[in-house]
């Protein structure tokens, strides 16, 4: 059975009535599993027709992005100006065809540590909005992802949106892959500078079981520099910051790369992100 509800409340009701229904959004992960025989759906809840999931809005400095908005719409245009790091991350997702279909809801639902958008959500302390049978609940993204491909979503729940603060200072994203396009991340990072609360937030992808916030490196940096501006960040501080971020990573060796390279690479890109922040 295929369900194509037009509203979130209908969708939640369907999950109450048919708890085995599998949630389909952009399909870029879901269908790979079907095609490879790892998932044989008997009933599917498609979010395609729920228009409000495919929109975004801005209010009081908070940007709310529907969970089914495709990445292509984050790459350019007004949303890209509000969230440059998200735009940069979106541009690295798969191919143009994948970006026309893939969504934040999909990256969150799959909860792979290699999910390209996730370091941005972590660095911006995103809030995940989840529709439940009784209404809505909100979770910090750091509480949402609990392990590789595991998250805090319960049966019967649907990720409906992500809330992020609009950019107030430099933000940047970087992702290492062996090819110049359409490549799975080997290591990625997002850095967000907030001159108002004098902080730099740094999240790393593909170097641990979940996305990792380099909290110790962030704290060290805050102690070294006055982050009211980026002007006091020196090249030496950038190098040390990268080294400390690498220390906080927990990479593994697999067929895509080695733990040693991933740690090294994440040090290099976090250092370079801070250099870009300093130059901004």
């Amino acid at each position: 059975m295929i369900y194509s509800p037009k509203s979130i409340s209908n969708a939640v009701q369907i999950l109450q009535d048919d708890p085995d229904a599998q949630i389909l959004s952009g399909g870029t992960d879901f269908m790979v599993e079907v095609n490879f025989g790892h998932r044989a759906p008997t009933s599917v809840l498609s979010l395609r027709a729920i228009k409000e999931l495919c929109t975004w809005s801005q209010q009081d400095g908070v940007i709310r992005i529907g969970s089914a908005l495709p990445y292509a719409q984050m790459e350019t245009g007004p949303l890209a100006k509000l969230l440059p790091a998200l735009a940069q991350a979106a541009r690295t997702v798969g191919s143009p065809q994948i970006r026309a279909a893939g969504t934040l809801g999909g990256n969150l639902g799959t909860s792979s540590p290699a999910g390209d958008s996730l370091p941005v959500l972590y660095a911006l302390d995103a809030t995940i909005i989840i529709a439940t049978a009784t209404g809505e609940r909100r979770m910090a993204v750091k509480d949402f992802m609990v392990g590789p491909k595991r998250n805090a979503l319960s049966k019967g729940e649907i990720i409906t949106a992500v809330e992020l603060p609009a950019s107030t200072g430099y933000q940047g994203y970087s992702k290492v892959g062996v090819r110049n396009a359409m490549v799975i991340s080997i290591a990625s990072a997002c850095l967000v500078h907030n001159p108002i609360d004098r902080s730099v937030r740094l999240a790393m992808g593909t170097v641990g079981p979940t996305i990792i916030r380099a909290s110790a490196a962030e704290k060290w940096l805050g102690e070294e520099c006055d982050l009211a501006s980026a002007s006091s960040i020196t090249p030496a501080i950038c190098a040390e910051f990268g080294r400390r971020c690498g220390d906080e990573s927990q990479p593994i060796t697999d067929h895509r790369s080695t733990a040693e390279y991933r740690r090294h690479a994440v040090s290099v890109i976090t250092s370079r992100l801070l250099e870009r922040c300093a130059a901004s």
């Binding site: 599917v44 395609r48 292509a72 065809q97 279909a101």
Partner: peptide, 17 residues
Amino acid sequence: GEAVCSCLVLAAAATDA
């Protein structure tokens, strides 16, 4: 109107497309 990979579209859910 958007280019997508048809291998990643569940046909039965594309009835409105």
